[in-house]
């Protein structure tokens, strides 16, 4: 087993809003190994982004509050660090790229001004040196004519180019971990393929670990080695990507896989897609017992009252369900 880069243990994140209080993340556990890509998959509101933001302590407090858990990185619990210590980690050790590159870049600063910011903050460089490195970084993310791009503003770039700039900024200090929150969701399918390939290449080149947040199982198969499926703030199933997609143990995982039409699957006339009934529960009204039971075809009385324990059928697989592995 390779070395553990990041260890998240029993993380709970609480939100207090005018509509009431709720747990957005309800005790999740996962390990990110060195050099691997782990995907957190789930629908909107399942807590995947909140989990990622907690790692970098980027959640606004209040309304958010991390009520329990540990996030161990390089022997230290990130949750016990003060603001100054956290600043040394953000951008330098752990970097992040966001879904929408248009809103996460500053529209009134040039690309160059934004890329050098991280370099100047974390490395003892002067502006000229930083700009030189920035141009190299833009070249590394395969942007044509990097020197020229440094002088341009975000609105002069296309969506795909902006995301490349975001990636260049994230990689500026050679972080050990890159958190990518829906990095291709706002992009067209051809550009998505380019960005995924770039991320994969950069990861192999630098040996960093990547935490990928996505709702798209297709993207997961392209670049993630392991995957954790989340629902209503909990991790329902974790395993290696191929294994988990070939033989899901949790009914929700199975539902997610089969509710998508697969390219090339021969369509028989009138054949319907397998659907997951109902809708994602509101965080204010988390169902009792197993959170998935109102939508689950296999649900029993036990599921309504009792929260399932984590089962570990083999060392690479964990899932939390009352069903035995292999019964769906």
């Amino acid at each position: 087993m390779s070395q553990i880069e990041l260890d998240v243990r029993n993380l709970k994140v609480f939100f207090s809003t005018p509509q009431g209080n709720f747990l957005a993340v309800n005790g999740i556990n996962f390990q990110l190994h060195r050099g691997e890509t782990l995907a957190l998959v789930g629908e909107s509101g399942c807590g995947k982004t909140v989990s990622a933001l907690s790692i970098l302590r980027l959640l606004p407090e209040p309304p958010a509050k991390i009520t329990s858990g540990e996030i161990i990185f390089a022997g230290r619990n990130l949750l016990s660090l003060n603001a100054k210590q956290m600043r040394e980690i953000r951008g330098k050790e752990i970097a992040m790229i966001f879904q929408d590159p248009m809103t996460s870049l500053n529209p009134v600063l040039t690309v160059g001004q934004q890329v050098i910011e991280t370099l100047l903050r974390h490395k003892s460089l002067n502006k000229k040196e930083a700009l030189k490195i920035s141009a190299q970084l833009l070249g590394k993310v395969e942007l044509p004519s990097p020197e020229e791009k440094l002088k341009q503003f975000p609105h002069q770039l296309s969506g795909g180019m902006r995301q490349r700039v975001m990636i260049a900024m994230a990689l500026a200090c050679e972080p050990k971990i890159l958190i990518a929150d829906e990095p291709t969701t706002a992009l067209d399918v051809l550009i998505q393929a380019q960005i995924l390939e770039l991320l994969e290449n950069l990861k192999n080149e630098t040996g960093m670990s990547m935490l990928l947040i996505t709702h798209d199982l297709g993207v997961v198969t392209e670049i993630a080695e392991r995957v954790m499926v989340m629902y209503a703030g909990e991790g329902l199933e974790t395993g290696s990507t191929k294994d988990l997609l070939d033989s899901p143990h949790h009914p929700y995982t199975k539902g997610l896989i089969s509710s998508r039409p697969h390219l090339g699957s021969t369509r028989e006339k009138g054949q319907r897609l397998t659907e997951i009934s109902g809708s994602v529960p509101s965080p204010h009204q988390r169902p009792t017992g197993c959170a998935f039971h109102p939508r689950c075809d296999w649900s029993t009385e036990q599921c309504k009252t009792q929260k399932p324990l984590l089962q570990t059928p083999n060392q690479n697989r964990q899932f939390s369900c009352h069903l035995q592995p292999g019964s769906i």
Binding site: V189, L190, Q192, G218, T221, E222, L245, H262, L263
Partner: peptide, 12 residues
């Protein structure tokens, strides 16, 4: 062809 190829696939 490129559009079809670019669809990230579950069929591993």
């Amino acid at each position: 062809e490129a559009l079809i190829n670019a669809v990230p696939g579950i069929e591993s």
